[in-house]
Design a protein around this nucleic acid. Structure first.
Length: 422
DNA sequence: TCTGGGGTCCTAGGACCC
DNA sequence: TCTGGGGTCCTAGGACCC
């Protein structure tokens, strides 16, 4: 009998900020996206004030000022490190763990006699060791575990850990009937609007649909979701270390950009970051996309949005080669005179280095160049990102993003460790 | 003035082939 | 004059997730 748990940290980014700054303990707090653009995390107090997820900060600035809400620029170095600590505790407690996102992991609990008691222990341990409060949802499928997790957080009687029994059980059905279909994992805005138009309003309504009819009308993905809601597993735990199939590096500019050199510099920067990630997973890519666009929210501006695929003559992980390819692509899609807002690159068709294609004569990266790249990565890791860079990155820095109020990197940087006074 | 970034999977439609 | 249809591969884009 399959049994999955989903462990999900509450208000993760906001909690990370609060752990290291006790003065923020009972203060409403929001964490902002890059460029301090959107609200991407809220503390419990900020949620209670009615601040919505994803809202543009500039629309809420006055409200936050009036209600004493503290805002923080995002500090991904800190959140990433806390996430790794959380994962290692979970791996210590359970042999089968899939890290699903920065603050969520699925656990395979098949064969555990008292899964709920185990969930409570996990919750206690995370609370005790790293001061992170999480919800635990347990069910026969990942989709049910997701829903259970939602219940664990929303309904106080579960004390943070909810185990759903079979979807045929009356109690489970009552819970499913109490939540809108949009709460189901995999049902977003578009799908929930269509489903509601078809009379499928609650989670229970969807669970009662015929999977084949759903497949006809909505496709295979939603059909799997229906099966999962009915207790039939369609999704399994995925390997933690699975290499990425595509690697994206992109950013909005801190300000509108028209200067082609600034865009070249930004693209160079993104290529460098993406190639670093590619080498970190011992990969090489056979093509890359270059993406460029104007600001869709500025309706008064001429809108433009293009991406272009640049195939490489050989699969490569060499920043220099990738830079040259990206510049060729950029040249093709850059239109002078527009007010640009964001650009990026995506590496695709990724394969492991060394697993060569069948063509004996296919060129491969020069080993000397790869050693140089490895050295560059090590220096940048030890001495700080950007210590060694390709020159095109330096053409301009006007595109850099804004960060108003980032907290210290408490756990990963010697100069920024928190200080405790006894 | 100011609206994120990084992923996965699926599908529609065009190009091409026989 | 009459001018098919099915399969496959590829790509762009859309939906979803956090």
């Amino acid at each position: 009998m399959a049994l999955y748990a989903l462990v999900d940290a509450n208000n993760f980014y906001a909690s990370c900020e609060k752990i290291f700054d006790p003065a923020l303990a009972d203060t409403p707090l929001v964490v902002l996206s890059n460029n301090d653009g959107c609200i991407v995390a809220r503390s419990a107090e900020a949620k209670a004030l009615g601040i919505p997820m994803g809202a543009p900060m500039h629309q809420w600035q006055a409200f936050c000022d009036a209600h004493g809400v503290i805002s923080k620029s995002s500090n991904y170095t800190l959140y990433g490190d806390m996430s790794a600590r959380m994962l290692s505790i979970l791996q210590d407690m359970c042999p089968q763990v899939e890290s699903y996102s920065i603050d969520e992991s699925f656990l395979d609990l098949a064969g555990y006699a008292d899964a709920r008691a185990y969930g409570l222990r996990i919750r206690q341990r995370l609370q005790q060791d790293i001061k992170i409060t999480c919800g635990v949802g347990i069910g026969a499928t990942k989709t049910l575990a997701k829903f259970a997790n939602h219940l664990a957080k929303k309904q106080a009687e579960f004390a943070g850990v909810c185990q759903l029994s079979a979807s045929t059980c009356a109690r489970t059905q009552a819970l499913m009937a109490a939540y809108p279909v949009a709460e189901v994992w995999g049902v977003g805005r578009q799908l929930s609007a269509r489903l509601q138009a078809d009379g499928v309003e609650t989670v229970l309504d969807l669970a009662r649909c015929d999977p084949l009819a759903i497949q006809q009308r909505y496709g295979i993905v939603l059909a799997k979701t229906v099966r999962e809601l009915r207790g039939e597993p369609c999704l399994t735990l995925e390997d933690v270390g699975r290499p990425k199939q595509q690697i994206i590096a992109s950013r909005s500019f801190g300000t509108t950009i028209t200067d082609p050199n600034a865009i070249k510099a930004a693209i160079s920067h993104h290529v460098s970051r993406a190639a670093e990630k590619l080498r970190a997973q011992q990969g090489q890519c056979a093509h890359l996309y270059v993406m460029l666009r104007t600001n869709p929210f500025r309706e008064q501006d001429t809108q433009y949005r293009r991406s272009i695929l640049v195939p490489l003559a050989q699969a490569s992980a060499d920043t220099g080669l990738l830079l040259a390819a990206a510049m060729r692509g950029l040249k093709q899609i850059f239109v002078p005179g527009l007010r640009y807002h964001k650009c990026g690159v995506m590496l695709g068709e990724i394969s492991p280095v060394g697993q060569q294609q069948t063509d004996l004569f296919a060129p491969v990266d020069d080993p000397k160049r790869l050693r140089l790249m490895g050295l560059m990565d090590r220096i940048n890791r030890d001495q700080g990102a950007g210590t060694l860079q390709f020159a095109s990155t330096q053409l301009s820095n006007t595109w850099q993003m804004r960060t108003g109020n980032r907290s210290p990197r408490y756990t990963t940087c010697w100069d920024e460790l928190p200080i405790a006074y006894a």
